[in-house]
Nucleic acid binder design. Structure first.
Length: 132
DNA sequence: GCCCTGACGTGAA
DNA sequence: ATTCACGCCAGGG
């Protein structure tokens, strides 16, 4: 019986589940999601699905970025700004539409070791430059 | 069936 | 940093 009411292909379900599993404050690439969902090389499928997914969906779609840390949506678009805002709300800062994957990436183990959090806060911290 | 178009990724120039 | 060509796959015309 193929009662067709939930026409959600298992592959899609796996992708959604994987996206939902991205830890808050972390981000992952389309390809990474596909691979984790057991569909290596299917990055485009992930993008396709998110494109079909309504903004109000109960899914952390904003934690998915391009492999280079760039936001995939058109710069300046509604969704783009929305994504930047949502990420910022989690502490993930984007500069010029780009996020530092070595710092916020789901798999940043390597960097984690190198980054060795300098416990004490340096008093000579440079102030963010005025604009840009 | 062919061609083009995507919230993509990677390697080469 | 940019641009191109491919690879990949689902849809649409």
């Amino acid at each position: 019986m193929k009662s067709a009411q939930t026409d959600i292909p298992p592959a899609h379900a796996d992708i959604f589940r994987t996206i939902a599993a991205i830890p808050p404050g972390r981000v992952a690439g389309y390809g990474e999601i596909a691979a984790r969902a057991g569909l290596p090389g299917r990055a485009r499928l992930v993008g396709k699905l998110l494109g079909e997914t309504p903004p109000g969906a109960d899914l952390p779609w904003y934690r998915v970025l391009r492999s280079d840390g760039r936001i995939a949506l058109p710069p300046g678009s509604r969704g783009f700004r929305e994504q930047v805002r949502r990420l910022a709300a989690e502490g993930v800062l984007a500069h010029n539409g780009r996020v530092d994957m070595t710092r916020y990436g789901w798999e940043r183990n390597l960097d984690d070791l190198l980054w060795a959090p300098p416990v004490a806060a340096p008093s000579v911290r440079k102030r963010s430059r005025p604009t840009r």
